[in-house]
């Protein structure tokens, strides 16, 4: 079975920073905005995406010789929906409070372009190890993006990180909390600022790279 394209290591590394799904590809925006009010929710979502993406990529890669071009999206969707349902049931069975907090956003992973795009771009063309490395790299990149946004929002909005109170916990200090950061507008503001920083850093990096060449 041919497996053209980048190696497994290249696929993994690209997913983390150079092709980061949130900051570079602007994919997976729905969970990025919706579940980043605190780190626990963001990391649970990242874990669910990691599970779904690895399973979907590996299975798609295993089946790549049997895929009909005009039916491939149907197969991808079927595969992703199955693993999302398993992740959703797992959370409801073993982390029920988090399952309630994430609500419809776990089932909504089914329509996350980030996952179907990895099946399309990598898994249907490359070997199983490469597809798995690609999924882990992309999921790690997604987790890093969610962690960066959730850290800013939870610190400024609640004065805590992973639910551990760090500052603004006293009653007198409550008035200084940026409550907007815990609410939906806070997600847009944080994403916008962090996205601008990521673009600026990328431009500086590219200039330096060109200068050394």
């Amino acid at each position: 079975m041919p497996s053209d394209g980048p190696t497994a290591t290249e696929r993994f590394l690209r997913g983390v920073i150079p092709e980061n799904p949130v900051y570079k590809q602007l994919l997976g925006m729905c969970p990025t905005l919706a579940v980043t009010a605190n780190m626990q929710a963001a990391m649970t979502m990242s874990g669910a995406v990691l599970f779904v993406m690895v399973c979907a990529n590996v299975l798609t890669s295993m089946l790549r010789g049997l895929l009909k071009p005009h039916l491939r999206i149907l197969v991808f969707t079927l595969t992703i929906a199955t693993f999302v349902t398993i992740a959703d049931r797992f959370l409801a069975a073993f982390i029920y409070p988090m399952s309630r907090e994430l609500g419809p956003y776990v089932p909504l992973i089914i329509v996350n372009c980030m996952i179907i795009s990895r099946c399309e771009v990598c898994a249907q063309k490359q070997s199983v190890p490469t597809a798995a490395a690609d999924a882990i790299g992309q999921a790690l990149g997604f987790a890093l993006a969610l962690a960066s946004i959730a850290t800013v929002r939870e610190l400024l909005g609640a004065g805590s990180w992973f639910g551990i109170g760090l500052f603004w916990q006293s009653e007198a200090a409550q008035a200084y909390r940026w409550q907007i950061m815990s609410q939906p507008p806070g997600a847009f503001l944080t994403l916008g600022v962090l996205l601008a920083i990521a673009v600026a850093l990328g431009a500086v990096w590219n200039r330096r790279k060109k200068a050394t060449i």
Partner: peptide, 13 residues
């Protein structure tokens, strides 16, 4: 393939 996967996934779920 779609039919086989649907059956397998249905059983797994």
């Amino acid at each position: 393939l779609v039919l086989a996967l649907a059956l397998a996934f249905g059983g797994a779920l």
